[in-house]
Design a binder for these strands. Structure first.
Length: 480
DNA sequence: CGTCGGTTGGT
DNA sequence: CCAACCGAC
């Protein structure tokens, strides 16, 4: 028997999955495994909302695999130990996976690849989660990009068109029984954890009802989401994407986060829409793909600056005078009771549904960083815990962008005024009313007074940020 | 992917 | 009085 292992990670799909396809084509017994690894050094534990998503995504994936004749094996523990054991159990001759781009993830994968090859296995990794491999996009001087627009132009103009999506394997050859390599036991099914035993779902309290109401999880749902976006939302995307009350954004981010859909599938679906559409479709498609481009840019940054989530990209910010610890203000922000309606509406949307409209994310983040002078890493961690799309690259890059410490960052003097932003992008206050019921009846409500004066705190932030002005921007060198 | 305060030229 | 525009931060 010719056994291959396919190790799935952030690619919980059967279509356009090069590792799964390679396994299916080169073996007659495919072992598809997901490893819950919360122990390997440097691997950041998932937040609550992403754990919840992962549980349901694994259920959906198991069903997809089963329909193709396969079976999803669940194991937990340090990935290196788990896979060494699995290789021994199955006498696999090959192992395949799709690449990850975080620092610790790359180190871990390299270690496992070395071990597998030293043990005589074929070990191969594939490009599946980004359109442009981070090391292939270089400036004229050979360095990684630190500005979005030239980065994305270079991707579009200087690189091969992203490959066509791959079909799902027609069948997943799988032997239900496997003979252990050691000892003479009877053939037995390969052991798999019970998903429930991983305790990915919240209990006591179960806060997931709002998330379950908002989201349908899994590969099928991701493609339905994409089709609906192309048909009904893309035509209004450029003009409507900034209005939080309108359903115009794609809402694909959590699906992309777990690889239920691939950026290649998104790219080529948008290309097809462009091919059949007019100039309006073209304009909207370019705008939308630029947002996919921001995701690519974030992965580019994460690959070249692996500590993106913890270290200021611009080291001038290492000396930035963040305010004294202010647990009351932080809690008010987290719980959506700052007394600033747009901030509170966004933070409540986040808590209830595991997401927040992009425009409101920028405003809520700007408020924490600039009005409250709280270190961006504190906000990044809260979003990591509460967003269903919490992504190691996009979340970190975006928080640094708002702080002004990041690549191609917002200039320090760009301080959002949440009141003006609400009037401009939510003129009927429809979004505010959706999440702040009491806001409609201020006289009878207990809606809090603002915890901070917007004008005063803006000026305080400008003064603090102005201290950096005399010092030249200091971008850390990329990791070799 | 901004805000503010100023000016200008219109009503 | 105010919308549109501009430069500074």
């Amino acid at each position: 028997m010719n056994t291959s292992i396919v190790w799935l990670r952030d690619d919980l799909r059967v279509s356009d999955n090069p590792a799964l396809l390679a396994g299916a084509e080169t073996s007659d017994n495919l072992v598809v495994v997901y490893v819950l690894d919360q122990e390997s050094p440097g691997i950041r534990p998932l937040g609550g909302a992403t754990k919840w998503w992962l549980h349901h995504s694994l259920e959906a994936l198991a069903d997809k695999l089963q329909r193709l004749g396969g079976r999803l094996i669940l194991r937990h523990g340090p990935a290196h130990d788990v896979l060494r054991e699995l290789i021994a159990e199955t006498s696999a001759h090959a192992i395949f996976w799709n690449r990850r781009y975080g620092g610790a993830e790359r180190e871990l994968d390299a270690t496992i690849k070395s071990f597998a090859r030293a043990s005589g296995l074929k070990a191969q990794s594939f490009q599946a989660s980004v359109l442009f491999e981070p090391w292939t996009v270089r400036t004229g001087g050979g360095t990684p990009y630190t500005v979005f627009t030239p980065f994305w132009k270079s991707c579009i103009n200087n690189h091969d068109i992203p490959r066509m999506p791959l079909d799902a394997p027609p069948v997943l050859p799988h032997s239900p029984l496997i003979t252990r390599a050691h000892g003479g036991q009877e053939a037995e099914p390969l052991a798999s954890d019970d998903l429930a035993s991983w305790h990915l779902l919240p209990t006591a309290p179960d806060w997931s009802a709002g998330l379950a109401h908002r989201w349908t999880i899994g590969e099928n749902a991701a493609h339905e989401r994409l089709e609906d976006f192309i048909d009904t939302r893309l035509p209004q995307y450029a003009d409507g994407r900034d209005a939080p009350a309108r359903l115009v954004t794609s809402e694909l981010s959590p699906h992309l986060r777990f690889g239920e859909i691939s950026p290649f599938q998104v790219w080529h679906r948008v290309e097809a829409a462009k091919a059949h559409g007019d100039a309006v479709v073209l304009k909207n498609a370019i705008k939308f793909m630029a947002e996919v481009g921001w995701r690519e840019f974030s992965y580019h940054l994460l690959y070249h600056w692996p500590d993106l989530a913890t270290v200021n990209f611009d080291s001038r910010f290492d000396a930035f005078p963040w305010g004294e610890a202010n647990p009351e203000a932080l809690a008010a922000w987290q719980q959506g009771r700052t007394g600033i309606p747009l901030v509170d509406a966004g933070m409540r949307e986040l808590w209830q549904s595991g997401t927040m409209h992009n425009r409101v994310r920028m405003v809520a983040a700007s408020f924490l960083i600039k009005n409250l002078l709280i270190d961006w890493r504190v906000g990044e961690q809260w979003f990591w815990d509460t967003l269903v799309d919490a992504d190691p690259a996009s979340n970190a890059a975006s928080w640094q962008w708002v702080a002004g410490s990041g690549a191609d960052a917002a200039p320090y003097f760009r301080v959002f005024n949440p009141v003006l932003q609400a009037d401009k992008f939510d003129p009927q206050h429809e979004y505010l009313h959706r999440y702040l019921g009491e806001y409609e009846h201020p006289l009878v409500s207990d809606y809090p007074l603002p915890i901070i004066d917007l004008v005063e705190s803006r000026n305080r932030a400008l003064a603090a940020f102005a201290q950096l002005q005399g010092i030249p921007r200091a971008i850390r060198p990329p990791s070799p």
